[in-house]
Nucleic acid binder design. Structure first.
Length: 464
RNA sequence: GUGGCCGUAGCUCAGUUGGCAGAGCACCUGGUUGUGGUCCAGGACGUCGCGGGUUCGAGUCCCGUCGGUCACCCCA
């Protein structure tokens, strides 16, 4: 038996690679269409980068990395169980680091996206692997003068809140636009929206201590997965949260959570709701007060895309302190990430993944021209013609079969879905056949054949 | 880390109370003297995940082990 790939990784054969290409291309197109610029960073980072602010859970799931070059290093890794580096489990710390390093010279706001591989050392299961692709879309900074970004006095507070709402909405609309382009509808997926800053205010109102807020968020996050409200209550006690008001709020009957009494959701979310309506994507959005997300660094808006029966398709939020934490200027930022695993399952289930042939064609796998020799002693001519066609920019192939049976060779050409076949009759003449149209011309001089091949190939741009 | 289910050809899977290891798809060759997705004939492909045990005989029964998968924990 040949060795199998490591757990939680995937081998991609041509069709699967085409499937992945379909997804990453859709990500790219949507991002660029929405004015985001592509960036990328290293696939491994100093492990400390993730210790700063990622949240407790993530640290236990890091793939440790080290060079192994010096015995001392190896010994340190053995002793501590930790490497000096870690394969990246998420992008946001890298992004914050990158922005912080060049903040002064970057456009305000900076709109960045990337798509690449990420790694988490978890036990694989449905919708969750150890190596996966993730699409990250972020807006760093605001569209108002930088000196206003973090002013706290009442006069500017409203303008800042509105600017943040605009940036939040840009991210969310980019995400929704992707869902839309792959054929999903608001009936298939929902965007659940909440604001941690608002929830935090309520928590203070309930009498939850400031240092207990992260624990309270974690409890809210676990609420939907908890087996019983009693279990939540005991976990709450265990976390050292005394507030009865919080407990009552946390354990209210399942379903959409009601806000605490005397609070108007519409008033709290008015700025962002206004933006989402202006972008005409409001029908995708549900305000859901139980969404807080697991990451420690979120400070305001949080949202996730969910589909019935799957784990979250995408998730994100506002992280206004992170850039500063990495030595940059105070920079409000917002972003989201989408993994390839869950969205692929969803598209598969909904029948929205294009057919195999369409995928291969979209990936450029369909040959423009297929060259065959009808007679012996034309092998040299086949190679010369192939080379010429390829130099012209065409995807050109030949048969690897030994037979001179033209019927067999045409079958070979059809099997790889070539558009046209050039049948060499002699070193200088050929027939040209259009496979889809069953149309053939020739025999003719090679120059003419190449010209027709180019003509017919150029028509592919207009094909459905 | 814990638990359920599953391991037979490259893929999807049959395989009877224990009795010669199979089908479809895919792949290769041919249907000879030049026109395609169909068709026909043939071929290659297996340590039945691996190791042990029971038995005259094990893909089948028992034990162990490895791998996959789903769920728990956790959730970026």
């Amino acid at each position: 038996m040949p060795p199998s790939p490591p757990p939680g990784t995937r081998d991609l054969y041509p069709l699967e690679a085409a499937r992945r290409r379909f997804l990453t291309e859709a990500w790219r197109r949507v991002s660029i269409r929405h004015g985001f610029e592509e960036v990328d960073g290293p696939t491994f980072e100093h492990a400390d980068l993730y210790a700063v602010k990622s949240g407790e859970g993530i640290l236990g799931e890091l793939f440790q990395a080290f060079s192994g070059k010096s015995p001392e290093e190896v010994e340190r890794v053995k002793q501590s169980g930790r490497g000096p580096y870690a394969l990246r489990p998420e992008f946001t710390p890298t992004l914050a680091r990158m922005y912080a390093a060049r903040a002064a010279s970057l456009p305000k706001p900076a709109k960045w996206f990337m798509a690449g591989p990420f790694f988490r050392a978890e036990r694989p299961q449905r919708g969750r692997l150890r190596e996966f692709l993730q699409w990250n879309v972020d807006v760093l900074g605001l569209d108002i003068p930088q000196e206003m970004w973090n002013v706290k006095h009442a006069a500017s507070r409203e303008a800042v809140a509105e600017a943040k709402a605009r940036m939040d909405a840009e991210c969310i609309s980019c995400c929704v636009a992707f869902l839309e382009t792959v054929g999903l509808t608001p009936a298939d997926v929902r965007v659940r929206l909440n604001d941690r800053a608002i929830v935090e205010n309520w928590l203070h109102g309930f009498g939850v201590e400031r240092d207990r807020v992260p624990s309270a968020f974690a409890l809210l996050d676990q609420r939907e997965r908890a087996s019983s409200m009693g279990e939540l209550a005991s976990r709450s006690k265990a976390a050292g949260i005394e507030s009865e008001a919080f407990l009552a709020y946390l354990t209210q009957p399942t379903g959409t959570m009601a806000p605490p009494s005397g609070v108007s959701i519409d008033a709290e979310f008015s700025a962002l709701r206004g933006q989402l309506e202006a972008l005409s994507i409001a029908e995708w959005i549900d305000v859901d007060l139980s969404i807080v997300r697991g990451l420690a660094y979120y400070t305001g808006t949080v949202f996730e895309v969910i589909a019935l029966g799957e784990r979250a398709v995408a998730g994100g939020g506002r992280y206004d302190n992170l850039v500063e934490l990495f030595g940059g200027p105070p920079t409000p930022a917002v972003g989201f990430a989408m993994g390839d695993v869950v969205i692929s399952l969803l598209l598969q289930d909904k029948g929205l993944m294009p057919k195999d042939e369409e995928l291969m064609e979209a990936a450029g796998a369909r040959p423009d021209a297929f060259v065959i020799a009808a007679k012996d002693d034309l092998d040299g001519a086949v190679l010369a013609l192939l080379s010429r066609l390829r130099r012209e920019g065409l995807h050109a192939r030949r048969s690897y079969k030994a037979t001179r049976n033209v019927g067999k060779l045409l079958k070979d050409a059809a099997a790889v879905r070539a558009r046209i076949v050039i049948i060499l009759e002699s070193p200088t003449t050929a027939n040209v056949k259009h496979l889809d149209r069953a149309e053939q011309q020739g025999p003719m001089p090679l120059d003419e054949a190449v010209e027709i091949a180019q003509q017919w190939t150029a028509e592919r741009i207009g094909e459905p």
